[in-house]
Design a protein around this nucleic acid. Structure first.
Length: 757
RNA sequence: GCGCGCGUAGCUCAGUUGGUAGAGCAUCCGGUUUACACCCGGAAGGUCCUUGGUUCGAGCCCAAGCGCGCGCACCA
């Protein structure tokens, strides 16, 4: 058979990649059940599952996604070739706050209206339309990377099935006493006009002034603050219990006028005060500081709110500042302190201020009534498959999160993140899950409007809307808030596999033969180390509570992709590399290799165009090796015995493959790929093939035939081993060279070349 | 303050359990018209941050220090 004419030029990714992907998809090769039907996979094959960390539905593919896809696709293709029942579940995330603010910005710019002008219903229609319109973009970009995702199982965090999972989860946790409503100091995003969780606050250092002053002339203790404007809300001064300077004042109460408002200040002793800082005395503002709120709780102090949700001073703040913005109020109060001679010192200080990671809005701590998940409330886990966590005993969500990792149920890679994880768990507070935005899963809670008898004051928490109040038959209204987007993301491993429908409540286990029974717990969660807390920990929490399982056995954390100088990619630096541009220039295989070869788990990736270009050359090298070998070995002498030197070469190759296989099993993708790269180029091409030229053309026919057989078999092997890393060029060679024959028309589902370890 | 990581060739980084220091890019010299210029051969380039320890043997293990980065907490 003559060699395919396609081989007679350099490998052109543009010519092969998209058509090949379309063929794989059309043949159903991403869908494990189709492989079973076609006899390409045994029905009793052990499962191997990864759920894709869902990209933002309105976003576009960035290099971080590209790295994630490359790594996961290597794992999935490796597992598939080894005969696992391999499932990779695709999905997208509504990314509540990010998407909503994007649409709000657009509305304001193009139509000059706010979401309140449109109203909730109309606004949501607009957001959903926007999400729908963007969806195909990101999905096609996932395809361009070559990701072998099972599209028949595509999930979206806001679709009906996921909605059902979210509400069911909420109701069950409420009934178990793990979800409660309470007034706390929360992180108020003044720009996004919503609460955000502790993990969604990012701190930046800024230069500011530390003011030392007295409330009024005969007030005995000077205090220091960076936020004079909040001081109109002070109710106490706290000192350390052992501080000798202030012993005489502890327990005393002082009254006076501060900045035009009457204050009653009690002196309290509290361990939280650092006697070294400032004057060693803290003005306690319970409504606008987490620490002060806690002090106020311990000493039974009142709460006076002086800043409102829009960042303006309230009427309670007094005539001097009421109605002013925080900034104006600060100036006014400092001015007043100066005029009154109360200002003792102004000192420059570096202070960290919090901003919301999604909107950039300054975080204002405010007391608000919100919904929380308690991480310390004990409950009984009816059934447990989690290592080290017994069923029918009292546990807390914190216990589950800690023990799942500590006892080995979940393994985190690289190992060093385990400590970071424990540290986070140990400092964890209750999780605030309500958000004052509209785009997202609305909280399944209703309130009786009339509230005519005491029972009616109880919130009605249920999966289906109640028509009337069950106590007085009055009208009900739904809680206006939506859930933190991470609440639904935390259910992702099992909400994508059919929970709660696939769940048998009586048996506390998945119904037989459902996706949930077959594919959960998943095998690997692969994601960036930056969302270890947001997501990984909370998935363990949710899966532990609802299923009594870990959500995954392994966590593979990849690093941040940075530019060639090691800087974060950002719009403001203008150093963003668009993976689709790279794919267009160098091909998806090259992009994938550049994000995998030699990059250890958890390490940041410095990506340069040079690097990608190098791997394009590699893909072409593989292509040319195939041409050389196929040209000279067709038909290859299958039964020719190998000479001793060729047996040695075959052994060397197989040892290399055995070690590559071991590396892949241990998630050492960086080493596996490096070994393959090195063997292919610098051993096979540079040495073995070069030495083979005279042998193949030589007089010794049996030696030539032996070498031809060796080369053919080596190509056959190598193309399979390289497939997970560079799926396109290898599949193209497989097809054009007809390497699989009748039995394995697709390289994608051909067997892995090394024996089971 | 608590914790984590990094420091290896000019640059970017590998180095799996301790066993003769590696790759890509860049530099220099040479080659090559049929697998491939998206190439090949060769050269140069290293106190593996420092000091001390364990060991027959340390880039790797231990201790201390220096420099850089990150996470968490505090930040009144």
């Amino acid at each position: 058979m003559p060699i395919s004419p396609l081989f007679l030029k350099p490998f052109d990714p543009a010519e092969h990649e998209e058509p090949l992907y379309a063929k794989w998809e059309a043949a159903g090769l991403f869908h494990p059940e189709t492989l079973i039907e076609k006899g390409l996979l045994r029905e009793d094959a052990p499962p191997y599952t990864i759920v894709l960390p869902p990209p933002n539905v309105t976003g576009t593919l960035h290099v971080g996604h590209a790295a994630m896809l490359a790594i996961e696709d290597v794992l999935v293709r490796f597992a598939r070739m080894r005969g696992y029942r391999t499932l990779w579940v695709p999905g997208t995330d509504s990314a509540a706050i990010a998407t909503q603010s994007k649409v709000e910005k657009q509305l304001l710019k193009e139509e000059g209206v706010t979401r309140h002008d449109l109203g909730r219903e109309a606004f949501l229609e607009r957001v959903n339309a926007f999400a729908k319109a963007s969806e195909q973009t990101i999905l096609n970009q996932l395809r361009r990377m070559g990701a072998s995702l099972d599209w028949q199982r595509y999930a979206y965090t806001l679709d009906d099935q996921r909605y059902k999972a979210v509400i069911t989860a909420f109701v069950r946790m409420y009934e178990a006493g793990l979800i409660y409503r309470g007034i706390r100091i929360v992180n108020w995003d003044s720009k996004g006009q919503t609460v955000v969780s502790d993990d969604e606050v990012e701190y930046t250092e800024e230069n500011t002034t530390l003011y030392t002053f007295r409330y009024w002339k005969d007030f005995p203790i000077p205090i220091a603050t960076v936020r004079p404007e909040t001081k109109v809300g002070d109710v106490a001064v706290a000192v350390h219990p052992d501080d000798s300077r202030y012993q005489a004042y502890i327990g005393k109460v002082f009254s006076g006028t501060f900045a035009g408002t009457e204050l009653t200040i009690r002196i309290v002793a509290d361990e939280a005060v650092n006697p070294e800082f400032g004057t060693g005395a803290v003005g306690v503002t319970p409504a606008h500081s987490q620490t002060d709120w806690e002090i106020a709780q311990r000493h039974n102090l009142p709460v006076v709110q002086v800043i409102d949700e829009r960042g303006k001073m309230t009427q309670t703040a007094g005539p001097l500042v009421a109605g002013k913005t925080v900034r104006q109020a600060r100036e006014a109060i400092v001015q007043w302190l100066r005029e009154e001679g109360l200002l003792l010192e102004e000192k420059p200080i570096v202070h960290r201020i919090g901003r919301a990671d999604r909107t950039g809005g300054i975080i204002e701590p405010l007391p608000k009534e919100q919904w929380f998940v308690s991480v310390t409330q004990p409950f009984i886990l009816e059934r447990s498959e989690i290592l080290g966590i017994p069923a029918k005993e009292l546990v807390t969500l914190k216990d589950i999160m800690r023990l799942a990792v500590e006892k080995g149920g979940v393994r985190i890679l690289p190992d060093r993140f385990t400590k970071v994880y424990f540290h986070w768990i140990d400092n964890l507070r209750d999780w605030c899950i309500s958000r004052q935005i509209w785009f997202g899963h609305r909280i399944p809670v209703w309130y009786c409007v009339a509230a005519s008898n005491p029972q009616c004051k109880q919130p009605i928490v249920r999966a289906t809307p109640p028509a009337r109040c069950p106590h007085c038959d009055g009208k009900v209204v739904q809680d206006p808030d939506t859930l933190d987007t991470w609440f639904s993301s935390a259910l992702w491993t099992f909400s994508t596999l059919g929970w709660p429908d696939a769940w048998d409540d009586a048996q506390h286990k998945a119904k037989l033969d459902t996706d949930l029974a077959i594919y959960h717990p998943t095998t690997v969660l692969e994601t960036g180390y930056d969302i270890l807390f947001f997501w990984v920990a909370r998935m363990i929490l949710m899966s532990g509570f609802h299923l009594g399982q870990v959500p995954f056995y392994n966590v593979y954390l990849h690093g941040l992709v940075r530019d060639e100088k090691g800087r974060k990619m950002s719009k403001s630096l203008g150093n963003i590399i668009d993976p689709l541009d790279l794919i267009a220039k160098y091909g998806a295989d090259a992009v994938r290799l550049s994000l995998v070869v030699g990059i250890a788990p958890g390490n940041d990736i410095k990506l340069s165009e040079q690097r990608v270009k190098g791997y394009k050359h590699f893909a072409n090298k593989v292509w040319n090796i195939a041409r050389f070998v196929l040209e000279r070995t067709d038909p290859f002498p299958k039964d020719q015995p190998l000479t001793e030197e060729d047996q040695a070469l075959a052994r060397e190759r197989d040892e290399m493959l055995a070690s590559v296989t071991e590396d892949l099993e241990a998630f050492r993708l960086h080493l596996a790929s490096e070994k393959l790269y090195h063997y292919t180029w610098h051993r096979l091409a540079d040495e073995i093939i070069e030495e083979s030229k005279p042998i193949l053309a030589g007089e010794d026919a049996s030696r030539a035939a032996s070498r031809a057989r060796l080369l053919y078999e080596t190509l056959h092997t190598l193309v399979r081993a390289l497939h997970p890393f560079a799926p396109f060029v290898t599949e193209a060679i497989w097809q054009e060279g007809n390497l699989g024959g009748e039995e394995h028309p697709w390289l994608m589902t051909a067997p892995w070349p090394a024996r089971e370890a």
